[in-house]
């Protein structure tokens, strides 16, 4: 049981949610899928006077524009994303560890806001050139996912994705079936831009504007380390994984 008492709020509109958040933004924890927040509240790593549940706001839609652009609601689960017309998000979502249950519960928005080093979603979203739509009582603003740092009075409501690049590759390295990733690499190859983004190897994703696979070099300045792999291991696997993802993307480009 969670040790500290809190008030549970389940607003039914974004306006009501933002108004409630503005009343006590410092003391409010925003609840998406719960896969990060609920264990953190339970362990005491996170304390909140209020928990604001986004489930009733209808933020779980995926809308496709005529040009192939995509608006993905922040509460979309990995199960939804696995079928979404975004190759990078779909490949990432299909490989999420935790089985059907986690894919049914965890949300893309929650993962991006939690921004844990070992998460799968941030690197894939950055490679897909996703823009985060942040709402507060004061209005809306948009920032690239690579710069995403929501203020306490803001709710991430959606991601906006441009039409997908013609070639996409996603590679994930983990050493056990039920393990968190040790490293992920997402590559997108288009006529005007090629990008590879590494996840899991440092506190935030590493963007490499590239290039051809043989030219690709990676320097991980401050490698992330956990029980699964030491920093040196992560630094060593980063470049080969990035190269493989880029090769996949180039091959799919034709």
């Amino acid at each position: 049981m969670i040790a500290t008492p809190f008030e549970y709020l389940a607003p039914e509109s974004l306006g009501a949610a933002l108004a409630a958040l503005a009343e006590d933004s410092e003391g409010t924890a925003i609840l998406g899928g719960g896969t990060w927040l609920v264990p953190d509240l339970d362990s005491g790593a996170r304390r909140a006077r209020r928990v604001l549940d986004l489930a009733g706001l209808g933020l779980n839609r995926i809308d496709r524009g005529e040009d192939g652009s995509l608006r993905v609601g922040a509460m979309c689960t990995y199960t939804q994303l696995a079928d979404a017309p975004s190759p990078l998000l779909a490949m990432m979502a299909a490989q999420i560890t935790g089985g059907a249950a986690i894919r049914n519960q965890a949300t893309i928005g929650g993962s991006l806001v939690a921004a844990r080093a070992q998460s799968d979603a941030p690197a894939a979203a950055i490679a897909a050139r996703a823009v985060a739509v942040l709402a507060s009582a004061g209005g809306e603003r948009r920032v690239g996912v690579h710069e995403l740092a929501p203020r306490r009075d803001e709710i991430l409501v959606a991601l906006e994705l441009p039409p997908p690049a013609p070639g996409n590759g996603y590679r994930k390295l983990k050493l056990g079936a039920s393990s968190w990733p040790i490293a992920t690499a997402a590559a997108a190859v288009g006529p005007d831009r090629t990008i590879v983004v590494l996840g899991g190897v440092s506190a935030s994703p590493i963007r490499i504007e590239a290039l051809r696979p043989e030219e690709l070099t990676v320097t991980v300045e401050h490698p992330f380390e956990d029980a699964l792999a030491p920093a040196a291991y992560r630094a060593a696997v980063a470049a080969p994984l990035a190269r493989r993802a880029l090769e996949d993307a180039l091959r799919r480009c034709g």
Partner: peptide, 27 residues
Amino acid sequence: CGTGDCGACTIEQDGLLVKSCLKLAVA
């Protein structure tokens, strides 16, 4: 585990498999 890793708390909710340690009861 209480962290969504072990799956011992798995249930089906509204037709979907979920881990019930990652949910608030009131929700």
